Simulated assay, not measured.
Amino acid sequence: MEQINILQIVRPSDGGIKEHVKSLLNNLNPSKFKIYVVCDNNTIYNIKQYFKDKVNITFLPIDIKGEISYLSDMQGIYSLTKLLRNNSFDIIHCHGLKAALLGGIAAKTVGHKNIIYTAHSNISFKTSQITNTYFYKTVEKVVSHISKQIIAVSEGIKNEMIMRKIPAERITVIPNGIDASRFKIETDKKHIKRQLGIPEEANIVGTIARLAPQKNLETFLKGAAILLSSMPELRFIIVGDGPLKKQLQEKAIELGIESKVTFTGYRNDIPEILHIMDVFALSSWTEGLPITVLEAMAAEKPVVATRVGGTPEIIEDGLTGLLVKPNDEKSLAEGIMHILSNRLFADALGTAARKNIVENYTIEKMVESTEKLYFDLITKRRPIT
């Protein structure tokens, strides 16, 4: 059988989309698929270094902005249209709403019909204002009309899309998957703590997130302040970077906890960083299927996370982690305190969490389902559900 040519269009991302795309492209069968990736030069640099030698990938730099920019978007559509006219792709797979909008318009222009759109997150956070509500819902309707198939990374995303009148039969749920073996490691915890300026004996509550509004890290900091009032020896780490870094650092100062909170910035040693944490916490307002939670669970860390998006699909409350109300620092602090005060409970959560990831959220399952969808689309069989 001839190789299937897949064009992947990726918007700029430092978070879950980048990790998802890295895992997918690094594990698609190179004997069956020839992969072309359209993204900006910075994204190419960030993901190219992770690919195995066997991967059959060609990178095509086109500057697709993450935000809406009329001039830049018109240039992006023009470049994509030219690319599609001059090349033969069997499937166009777009990651994120912005990539799907530009890629979908270009594909429609040249008459290409085999378009897949992966929805990595809900649009509910973006639609907090009336004008944004109309805009994003309109964009989503355009994208869903153009796309032959939509991949939702969680049942929660699928259900929200159905509520917005997107046909259920065109939505396939393929959960994110990770390589759990990367997180079963031995590491020198004392050395990493010393690097970060954290006392060796201190318990650590950590989070890994892009420092952006939807991650609601102010609630994480407020929860930290509550905990420090009764457990002053605790330390907190926030791993990641983003537009709100300065604002969050100022919030830590305002709360009087700046000496107990470490902003590590971007790290490429996530398995090692996870292993110094005693509790992993996620305070998001909205999520698709958070890869950082999958990774923390694979590292056998007890997780406290907000009950939003696809997170309750990963965490069974009280068995594989704890779920708390969003935007509620008291609830978050109580969940963390419950784990820190009960070592046996914490260990049981961590063990059950890793078992869940190993059995249900592997890269192999994600890639197998995606490959099947590709073949179904090419052969015009009914897509998987």
Rank of each mutant, 00 (worst) to 15 (best):
L373R: 02
S144F: 00
I44L: 00
N342Q: 02
K108F: 00
E313S: 09
T81Q: 00
K190G: 06
K372G: 06
L227E: 00
K330I: 10
G15K: 04
N203E: 12
K158F: 03
L234D: 01
F220I: 06
S144E: 01
G265T: 11
L332G: 06
K54G: 06
R182S: 07
K245D: 05
I270A: 02
I226Q: 12
N159A: 07
G104D: 01
W285V: 06
I276Q: 04
H338E: 11
L24M: 13
R267E: 01
T43N: 01
S283T: 14
E218H: 15
K325S: 13
V139W: 15
Q214W: 02
R164Q: 14
F125Y: 02
S369V: 07
V37W: 00
N114R: 14
A180N: 05
A352L: 13
K52S: 09
I226G: 04
A100T: 03
N56E: 09
E287P: 11
A99L: 07
G350V: 02
M297W: 11
I57Y: 12
A352I: 06
R194F: 12
S369W: 08
M337Q: 13
V367H: 00
K245G: 05
L322K: 15
Y361E: 01
A180M: 07
D188K: 15
G288N: 10
L211M: 04
L228E: 06
Q214K: 04
I174V: 05
Q247S: 14
T311G: 10
T138I: 11
M231D: 06
G156S: 14
K365W: 11
K330F: 13
L289S: 10
P61I: 00
D376S: 14
E140N: 06
L322N: 06
T138P: 07
R235E: 08
S79G: 07
M366W: 08
G223Y: 05
F236R: 03
L340W: 03
K48T: 06
K330A: 07
K113Q: 09
I35H: 09
S147G: 09
A305E: 05
V153F: 15
V153T: 10
S230V: 07
N46I: 02
L248Y: 14
G111V: 08
P312S: 09
R307L: 07
E2H: 15
I276P: 04
Q247R: 15
L377V: 09
K48Y: 08
A305V: 09
K126F: 14
I64L: 15
I105V: 04
F375H: 14
W285I: 11
G242Q: 04
S259D: 13
P12L: 01
K148M: 10
F345R: 12
Y78V: 10
A353Y: 13
P167E: 10
S144N: 04
I363L: 14
T207L: 00
P312C: 09
I378T: 12
F345H: 11
I291K: 08
S144Q: 00
A225S: 12
E316H: 12
N203S: 13
I62N: 09
N42R: 10
R354N: 07
L102E: 03
I62V: 08
G16F: 04
Q149C: 08
G318R: 15
A225V: 05
T172C: 00
G206P: 01
L83C: 11
I336N: 00
L373I: 00
K189F: 12
Q49G: 01
T292S: 08
N159D: 10
T118I: 02
K246C: 07
D278W: 10
I336T: 03
I174T: 03
N46A: 02
L83G: 07
N360R: 14
L340Q: 01
G350F: 04
A225G: 05
